[in-house]
């Protein structure tokens, strides 16, 4: 049963890529093509882009991704537990809850260390 489902998804994956690709290719050939340096310029408000678009970003982005990664890994562990929930004895449920509490501890730590705060130099202080 599952094998056929996945075979279908495999076929559908190819179709899902083709379906949007087709109109895009079609549009590419149907539209006019008169490029000129000004038209092809990168959009900017009145000026040429100053420097490269590669500006180093805030460290916060990285921290959010980091905290997310930890949560993601832990949550994937929790799904089999939730599926098996019906056949688990009470103490096994509490083992899962202990796991969740560890997750909560991670959240509390990240919160207290202000890893979840967003600072803007020009922003009025976040209201918390």
């Amino acid at each position: 049963m599952n094998g056929t489902q996945w075979a279908f998804i495999g076929v559908f994956f190819v179709l899902a890529l083709l379906f949007p690709a087709l109109p895009i290719v079609l549009g590419h050939f149907m539209g006019p093509r008169r490029p000129n340096p000004i038209k092809n310029d990168v959009y900017e408000c009145g000026l040429k882009t100053y420097g490269t678009p590669w500006v180093p970003f805030k460290v916060q982005f990285y921290l959010f991704a980091l905290v997310f990664l930890i949560f993601d890994v832990e949550l994937v562990f929790l799904y089999p537990w939730a599926v098996a929930y019906g056949v688990l004895p009470m103490f096994a449920v509490f083992e899962g809850i202990l796991f969740i509490l560890m997750l909560a501890a991670a959240l509390v730590y990240a919160w207290k260390r202000e890893a979840l705060d967003w600072y803007e130099p020009t922003m009025p202080e976040a209201t918390d």
Partner: peptide
């Protein structure tokens, strides 16, 4: 459909094409 397909200067072409396709897929 009949609009010009403008690819900005300095764009990373393969990835530039892939993005809208992936977004629908």
């Amino acid at each position: 459909m009949t609009k010009e397909d403008i690819i900005p200067e300095g764009a990373d072409k393969p990835l530039y094409w892939a993005a809208p396709i992936l977004s629908v897929a």
